[in-house]
Every structure is written in structure tokens, then in C-alpha cells.
């Protein structure tokens, strides 16, 4: 006589739902990001960072880490770049910028420094991590220093734009929480 298989019910906590919704949004922005043509490979607007910043300022660093890492893995899976050099560059950049964001969020007084500061710090940490990995692993030559200036300029610009977008979103009140069950 067959016995009923044991059942395991997982309950999604409010944070899980939040992370999933934000990560889905970030993945969509990542895909848009990948479709925008740029003059230098690796130079990207980083629109998904808006979501990471939003997660950080609204829900804290741990949610931001989950959203960002989920986004990196899921987006590279969809783009077919999982475990390629581009994926590792993206992962290193993402981890560095999360580290920078964690420190900045804790240390910078929120009264004076807003989303734009956080966004700029994230952008610069991102290119620093990427270029460091590229120097150590992909192009082991100091010739890569030649690419630092355009990347730094791009990071200033995208950091500003993404920060402003995040600040504009933060002006609106948080959307009412949806029920935890899908």
C-alpha cells in the first residue's frame, strides 16, 4: 500500500517576497542594459544598480546583497554568459560595489549624503573591482591602466544618473505590501 509522500511546505517571508520582486525588476533592467550599445566593452549604464540602491535604502544591506547576487546570476543565465569571463567581471564588480555600499551606508550620515553619493560609490567600486580582476587574471599587463580614465568618467556619469533615478523613486511613498502568498 503506497504511503503518502512526505510534504514540505515552505513559507515565503515578507523579505523573501520583497527580494524576489526586486530581483525580477533588476533582471529586467539588466537585460535592457545589455541591449544598449556602448563604445567600449564593459562600459554599461548599470541600470540594475538603481534597484540595488533602492533595496539598500529601503530594506537594508542584506536585502541589497540578495537582490544583487540573484540579479547577476539570473541575468547571466538569461544572456548565456554564465561562467564566462564577462560573468566573473560582473560578479567581482557587484561584490566590490556591495562592499562599498555596506560601508558607505553605515558610515555616511544620511542627512548629508543621499542616493547619488551611494550610487557614485557603487559605480566606482564596481569599475575598481572589474579592472583589478582584469589586471590580475584576463590582461596581466599595466596596459589596462590606459582604460581607467574613460571608465572613471563613465562611472561618474552613470553613478549620477542612477543615483538621481533612485532618489526620485525614494520620494514616492513605499507601495503597500502585497499579501505574502502568491
Amino acid at each position: 500500500m503506497p504511503t503518502a509522500p512526505p510534504t514540505l511546505t515552505l513559507h515565503a517571508r515578507a523579505d523573501d517576497v520583497r527580494v524576489a520582486r526586486l530581483a525580477a525588476l533588476a533582471v529586467a533592467l539588466s537585460l535592457i542594459d545589455a541591449g544598449i550599445p556602448t563604445p567600449l566593452p564593459g562600459l554599461k549604464p548599470g541600470l540594475a544598480n538603481i534597484v540595488t540602491l533602492l533595496a539598500l535604502t529601503r530594506f537594508g544591506w542584506q536585502v541589497a546583497v540578495s537582490v544583487s547576487l540573484l540579479r547577476i546570476f539570473a541575468a547571466s543565465l538569461l544572456l548565456g554568459s554564465l561562467f564566462t569571463p564577462g560573468f566573473f567581471l560582473s560578479l567581482t564588480g557587484g561584490l566590490c560595489s556591495l562592499l562599498g555600499l555596506g560601508l558607505a551606508h553605515r558610515l555616511l550620515p544620511g542627512r548629508w549624503f543621499g542616493a547619488v553619493s551611494l550610487s557614485l560609490i557603487a559605480a566606482f567600486c564596481h569599475i575598481a573591482g572589474q579592472l583589478a580582476l582584469a589586471r590580475l587574471w584576463l590582461i596581466p599587463s599595466d596596459g589596462i591602466l590606459y582604460f581607467v580614465p574613460p571608465f572613471a568618467l563613465a562611472a561618474s556619469l552613470t553613478g549620477l544618473v542612477n543615483g538621481l533615478a533612485c532618489a526620485a523613486l525614494l520620494r514616492q511613498p513605499p507601495s503597500p505590501q502585497e499579501p505574502d502568498t502568491p
Binding site: 542627512r111 543621499g114 547619488v116 553619493s117 532618489a167 520620494r171
Partner: peptide
């Protein structure tokens, strides 16, 4: 939330 705070301007200038 102001769009741009004093520290943000400083940070942008630094960047």
C-alpha cells in the same frame, strides 16, 4: 528625500 544633498554634490565633484 531631496534629489541632491550637499554631500552628494561634494561626492560628485570628487568623482
Amino acid at each position: 528625500w531631496a534629489l541632491l544633498r550637499p554631500g552628494d554634490v561634494l561626492m560628485l565633484a570628487l568623482a
